[in-house]
């Protein structure tokens, strides 16, 4: 049964990627499309659009979608909290501050790497602080959540401070980043983020049964041989790396890390090993499709939407439908 669902999700991902390569703001004839598919090294307009513009972006969407969904799934189990998502533990505030500082004060110049590197650096700073504060409270669930929420507040306020000092153009640029978007040059970034996201998801998968035990409470987990505090320490670092890489690549794309794990849990149950695989596949497919919508829906007017807007609206509505359908069997 689970294998069939994995297969369906995988096929769905392939179809999504295909749709994303096929459609964009510019229409491409089927003939041209197949030609550049079968002759991927031949230069030309269709080649440039499909392989140099759409393809890196689809790849980035796959990685970011999978990473966010897997990290969200792990954190929901780790914190036994249905509202946990990759940004719960303070990572977003730090990343936003990093991006804002670099946009306004320009302390470093790394070309295409400037914003990703500074966002990742900011994320790691805030994660380290959360780790240190939560460590004083023995990595209890409430300790982690409180530390994360409070640091998010502090960092977000610092971002707002910078926004008031920034020029309108810089403000606009930061806001766009805060909503989350996959636009821009992804050729460089997709060479870096797989090294964080793929091993990250693999580790989360390996800890799947530990997450199952932790879901029953720290004490019961201990009686099953799982030291919840240790696992939380390790997986906190892992999810932070994954989420940090995702934020670096796409800004703060919301809802994927919250909704996808929920939806998958309704479909295949709460066991974390299958859940992490299903969430990764579904998250990837969802973000690829959402980004395709973001690219195309207003393209006739020369406007691209930030993908965070699409994931928020489509994801939210999709989730409400699920919620209404499964009212009786809601696990939370």
């Amino acid at each position: 049964m689970r294998k069939i669902i994995f297969l369906i999700l995988f096929v769905l991902l392939i179809i999504s990627a295909f749709i994303a390569l096929r459609f964009g703001s510019v229409g491409i004839e089927w003939r041209e499309f197949w030609h550049s598919f079968t002759h991927p090294s031949e230069q030309g307009t269709a080649h440039s659009i499909i392989w140099l513009t759409r393809f890196p972006r689809v790849l980035a969407a796959v990685l970011v979608g999978a990473g966010l969904a897997a990290a969200g799934c792990a954190l929901q189990g780790l914190l036994r909290n249905p509202l946990a998502e990759p940004y719960t533990l303070g990572i977003s505030g730090g990343a936003a501050l990093g991006a804002a500082v670099v946009t306004v004060f320009m302390p470093i110049h790394l070309g295409a790497w400037t914003t990703p590197v500074s966002a990742f650096f900011g994320a790691m700073v805030s994660v380290t602080l959360v780790y240190l504060i939560a460590g004083r409270r023995r990595f209890s669930v409430t300790g982690l959540i409180l530390a994360g929420v409070i640091l998010s507040f502090i960092f977000s306020s610092a971002v707002l401070l910078i926004l008031t000092l920034a020029s309108p153009l810089e403000t606009n640029s930061i806001l766009f980043w805060l909503i989350g978007s996959l636009s821009g040059d992804k050729v460089s970034i997709i060479k870096a983020i797989p090294f964080f996201i793929i091993p990250g998801i693999a580790i989360l998968y390996l800890f799947g049964r530990d997450l199952d035990a932790i879901a029953l409470g720290d004490e019961k987990a201990f009686h099953l041989g799982v030291e919840a505090i240790r696992v939380r320490q390790i997986l906190f670092v892992v999810t932070s790396m994954v989420a940090g890489a995702c934020i670096a690549a796409a800004g703060m794309v919301g809802f994927v890390g919250l909704i996808i794990p929920h939806a998958m849990r309704m479909m295949i149950g709460p066991g974390h090993k299958p859940l992490i695989i299903a969430s990764s596949l579904a998250g990837a497919a969802f973000l690829v499709l959402a980004d395709t919508v973001a690219r195309t829906v207003l393209s006739r007017h020369g406007q691209e939407l930030p993908v965070g807007v699409v994931t928020g609206i489509i994801g939210g509505m999709f989730f409400i439908i699920l919620l209404l359908k499964q009212r009786e069997k809601m696990s939370f």
């Binding site: 510019v26 393209s299 007017h301």
Partner: peptide, 19 residues
Amino acid sequence: KQVIGDLLTQDIERIIQLK
């Protein structure tokens, strides 16, 4: 004229197509 975006975001595909 063909619109290719605003100041911060540009439709790269459209630009490629316009040669």
